[in-house]
Amino acid sequence: MASHDAARWYVISLRPQGGHASLRRLARRHGAGLLALSPWRLQSLDGAAARAALARALAADVVLFTSPAAVVAARRLSALAPRRGQLWTTVGAGTAAALHEAGVDDVLAPARMDSEGLLALPPLQDLHGRSVGLVTAPGGRGLIARTLADRGASIRRAEVYRRLPLAPSPRALARLRALQAPAVLLLSSGEALDTLLRQLPADAIARLRALPVIAASARLADQARALGFAPVSRADGPQPGQLFAAAAAAVTPLRLASDSLPTAPTGTPA
């Protein structure tokens, strides 16, 4: 483990497999390490049924993408071209940026980048007689569909990708168990945390629960506390920079405490 503990502190990422790059860059910039505990990998869906569902969703009065992965998967199935009079919206800035990259210029995204922030947008308050195309994956964000349906919307759901559970590798578990430097768990998906906990052995779960948590929203903070995590702090939002800034603030007292511990004299076992 000595080579992994070269960093003075760590962030633990629950992003999907292959989705840790932005956090890893931020970690390197601030002298931190990153431990990836991906609970799943993402798989785009294809075939006639997926294409038909997406076409129906893209023809709705309101088109709502729930994640950047939904945008990437949808682009593999169809061109993304809003028609006049439609509202295209997203949960946050990352998904909006993915739509901009796909050529969709006019996208409404909430300042508060979570389900509650999206549902507070004025155009989504009264949806009687209107259709909402929800471009998403199975599971996740059930609050959005339920709330919009309660407001009168006809929901057209298009599942364009899916999350396949992925057990943490023995190497990742060994790193978690042996980690000695201060570390912080980053939480931007409640489903990711639930999925990970179902796959971890008891000792690894106990190790995680002993770490500070940075949650992207109040709802996620409440979920983490209900699952036995403490202490739990909130970031300003789910963007990598927001999560990392909160993590750096949370870990500073831990680093100071770690740095103040006496070191064993040379040649003396620690």
Rank of each mutant, 00 (worst) to 15 (best):
T89Y: 01
P262T: 06
V132D: 03
S154A: 04
D114L: 00
L80G: 04
V160M: 02
L42G: 05
F65S: 09
L80F: 14
G142Q: 08
H30I: 00
A49E: 15
R24P: 09
R15I: 12
V184N: 08
T136G: 02
D105V: 15
H4R: 13
L200V: 09
T89H: 03
R24E: 05
W88S: 12
I144E: 11
T263I: 05
A60R: 09
F229T: 12
A226S: 08
T263V: 11
P16A: 09
L261A: 05
D5H: 07
A27V: 14
S22C: 00
A192Q: 00
S233E: 00
L243K: 01
S67M: 07
A52N: 08
R234T: 00
L186Y: 12
S154W: 11
R8W: 10
V62C: 11
I214N: 01
A172Q: 14
L211F: 12
A70E: 03
L227A: 12
V11L: 10
V104K: 03
L176K: 02
V160C: 03
R112P: 10
A215I: 02
G92T: 13
R83Q: 04
A226D: 07
A210N: 10
A111G: 04
L87K: 05
A97I: 01
A270V: 04
T147P: 05
T136H: 01
R255W: 14
A55V: 08
G152L: 02
A36C: 08
P82T: 15
P240F: 06
A48T: 11
R175D: 01
Q125S: 11
A6H: 03
R24M: 06
P122A: 10
R151L: 03
A249T: 11
D126V: 06
A7G: 12
D61T: 09
M1P: 10
L127K: 01
G241M: 02
D203H: 10
R225I: 04
W9V: 02
D259W: 11
M113K: 06
G18F: 03
D126H: 12
D236R: 11
R83A: 10
R207S: 12
P212E: 15
L256K: 00
P138N: 05
A235P: 11
P110S: 08
A226Q: 06
R157W: 08
Q86K: 14
V11Q: 04
V213T: 01
S38C: 12
A249R: 14
S188R: 05
P269H: 05
R141H: 03
H100S: 04
D259V: 01
R51S: 13
L23Y: 08
A149P: 08
L127R: 06
L200F: 14
A206H: 09
G18L: 05
I214V: 15
R171P: 00
L243I: 04
W9P: 01
A183Y: 10
A70I: 14
V62A: 13
T263D: 04
A70K: 06
W40Q: 15
R255Q: 07
A270S: 06
L148R: 13
I214H: 01
Q17F: 12
Q86T: 11
T268V: 15
R234M: 02
A192W: 08
G31W: 11
G190V: 13
A248M: 02
V62R: 02
A248Q: 09
G94P: 10
